[in-house]
């Protein structure tokens, strides 16, 4: 029991230590390459398994899109959870890196959501005969994409990082609370209308030959996300440093000219 607490205290101390951006950059500088190597390895294995997987008797070769599509949509949702946790961290514990984390995660989340939509659309074309159907799941993902884009637009519109972080955190949390409601209402809307043109395939239990590549790809995408997230956080920290350096450069010119004038 005591062991656990000291351990967790140790973890928290380390976690708070990371709040120091310099410490974070130091950790990131070795963590990013390590994660990148793991990601590349996993992606290689996953893609190999995926391409060597047999064709589905119903869907043919298109089933292989699944190995990209499904992990993308998982990461799209996981990224939003990461952002929500960061938003809590930013608002409740005022962890300075949490701000950076939300801002850095939004474009990555949007990219994975876009990938999920795109691959879903490519998969849907041979399945449904159309690029897009207003099916409950697709529609929800589209709304998630819009939420991501809105957050990106907001973070771009406010230049002052601290103000931006607060608004971003609050909107992220409201989005998080709202997502189940959106999901529910979209489902309800969809069953209310029940479009006739959609013929959904019965879901067979997944065979192991599909499951292994899928899980590998999911793992690869997870490490890919964290690699990208760390890189984006590093960039955001550097961007903030440049900003404060430029501001102090502007101030310095004034003090210099004042000392010359006197």
């Amino acid at each position: 029991m005591t062991d656990v607490t000291t351990k967790s205290v140790g973890f928290w101390a380390w976690f708070w230590d990371l709040a120091n951006p310099t410490r974070f950059l130091a950790v990131a500088s070795w963590l990013i390459p390590v994660l990148a190597i793991i990601t590349v390895t996993l992606l290689g294995i996953g893609l190999y398994l995926g391409f060597s997987a047999p064709q589905d008797y119903q869907q043919g070769a298109t089933v292989q899109i699944m190995f990209i599509h499904v992990p993308s949509s998982w990461i799209a949702m996981m990224c939003y959870s990461v952002m929500s946790v960061s938003a809590l961290g930013s608002l409740v514990w005022r962890h300075p890196l949490a701000d950076v984390s939300i801002r850095a995660a939004a474009p990555i989340g949007a990219a994975f959501t876009f990938l999920a939509l795109l691959t879903g659309s490519l998969w849907g074309k041979p399945m449904w005969g159309t690029w897009w159907v207003w099916d409950a799941r697709l529609t929800s993902v589209l709304i998630l994409f819009i939420i991501y884009m809105g957050l990106i637009a907001l973070s771009r519109a406010i230049e002052e990082p601290i103000t931006a972080a607060r608004s971003l955190a609050i909107i992220t949390l409201i989005g998080f609370i709202n997502i189940p409601i959106i999901k529910f209402s979209v489902n309800w809307w969809n069953t209310l209308h029940q479009p006739a043109s959609v013929s959904r395939l019965a879901k067979p239990a997944m065979d192991v030959v599909f499951l292994y590549p899928l899980l590998t790809m999911a793992l690869a995408y997870t490490t890919l996300f964290f690699t990208l997230h760390l890189m984006a956080m590093r960039n955001e920290i550097l961007r903030r440093r440049i900003r404060s350096m430029r501001m102090s450069a502007a101030r310095r010119i004034d003090t210099q000219s004042a000392s010359q004038g006197n």
Binding site: V133, I146, M149, G150
Partner: peptide, 23 residues
């Protein structure tokens, strides 16, 4: 970006009002 996003939102809103009938 904001303009395109607005465009996207307006287009997305319509099926919720008229129903997802593709035809």
């Amino acid at each position: 970006l904001t303009g395109i996003l607005f465009f996207l939102v307006v287009v997305t809103i319509v099926p919720f009002a008229v129903g997802p009938d593709l035809n």
